[in-house]
């Protein structure tokens, strides 16, 4: 059985990527389960989707804890502990990371027990097509799939979209597939988990404490500050000080997160630790003083 997990952020189309891969495997004659993690999928927030596929009936249910293939749509996710991207990765887990950076860099950074592959960023790839790209890259690694099955699954899963969007998605998925053509078969099916031989953990029994001691007492205010929602951003709004006329109230008032403040010189300052990159400020600034810089590029410039 294949156990495949896609990680991305709400709005990148990763839930759809799981469906595309699932449909392609189903058309290839396998039994398939595919599901996004149930719950509130927030635009920009970490989400995951998973696919199981097997020639024999699938009895496993629920979240995949030990994946054979892990697809990461965005390296930023690795910095978010609550996204659990690498959870359960073992020596046989193939990790496919979608980034414009070289594999050597990420091998060193992640020091994974198993193989790491890079799915390069493609020319003309916008964030919303990331799902199609990741589905294309993942499909290239499985012996059961070929480009025809991939294309058919995309046409089926995206049928509700415009012809133009389908064409773009197809083109990008094919390019991703081609980029990884040499890796076909690297992901291998693992045996289904069996309950035979399961040993009960050696539980420790602890006496219950009084509710007053064991229940959380929440008196601290404004703790959300500790969540670095800035990691959600795909693009960073950057204010050009030359163009900004200092009418800070426009960008600041419309910012739904209220993360634009005015400094002592009456200039707007964006709190990048928390800005989620909705870019409403960019659309509202009458002087076009704000531009959107892809986050990886902005981070590179910052370091340089």
């Amino acid at each position: 059985m294949y156990r495949i997990r896609f990680h991305g952020r709400g709005g990148q189309g990763l839930k759809r990527a799981g469906r595309i891969l699932g449909t392609a495997l189903f058309r290839a004659g396998l039994e398939v389960q595919d599901a996004p993690r149930y719950g509130a999928e927030r635009r920009g927030a970490p989400i995951f989707a998973y696919v199981r596929a097997s020639r024999s009936p699938i009895h496993e249910r629920g979240v995949i804890s030990c994946p054979d293939l892990l697809i990461i749509a965005d390296p930023h996710l690795l910095a978010m502990p609550d996204s659990g991207v690498l959870a359960g990765a073992t020596t046989r887990t193939v990790v496919l990371l979608h980034t414009g950076e070289p594999v050597s860099l990420w091998r060193e950074r992640l020091d994974l027990p198993g193989p790491l592959l890079i799915l390069p960023r493609l020319p003309g790839e916008e964030e919303r097509f990331r799902g199609a790209v990741c589905a294309g890259g993942a499909a290239a690694l499985l012996t059961e799939l070929d480009e025809g099955l991939l294309a058919r699954a995309i046409s089926e899963e995206l049928a509700h979209l415009s012809a133009e969007l389908i064409m773009t998605s197809l083109g990008l998925a094919r390019a991703a597939h081609a980029a990884l053509a040499g890796e076909r078969g690297i992901v291998r099916q693992e045996e289904p988990i069996s309950a035979a031989g399961y040993k009960t953990p050696a539980w420790l029994t602890l006496a219950c404490e009084e509710a007053a001691v064991s229940a959380p007492a929440i008196h601290a205010a404004a703790t959300s500050e500790l969540s670095q929602t800035g990691l959600w951003r795909g693009k960073r709004p950057v204010i050009d000080p030359g163009r900004c006329r200092g009418c800070w109230w426009l960008c600041a008032t419309f910012c739904p997160e209220r993360v634009i403040a005015v400094d002592a010189n009456r200039r707007p300052r964006i709190d990048y630790g928390h800005c989620k990159g909705c870019l409403i400020c960019l659309r509202q600034c009458p002087h076009h003083a704000i531009s959107a810089v892809p986050e990886e590029e902005a981070a590179r410039e910052e370091k340089a």
Binding site: G11, T229, H274
Partner: peptide, 26 residues
Amino acid sequence: QHLRELPDRHCLAAGTPLCAGCGGLA
């Protein structure tokens, strides 16, 4: 009469888990 007369200190802390661009949060 003018947006600049709206409060520029905010009551809610940042770091909410809602979607980027949520109109309900706004």
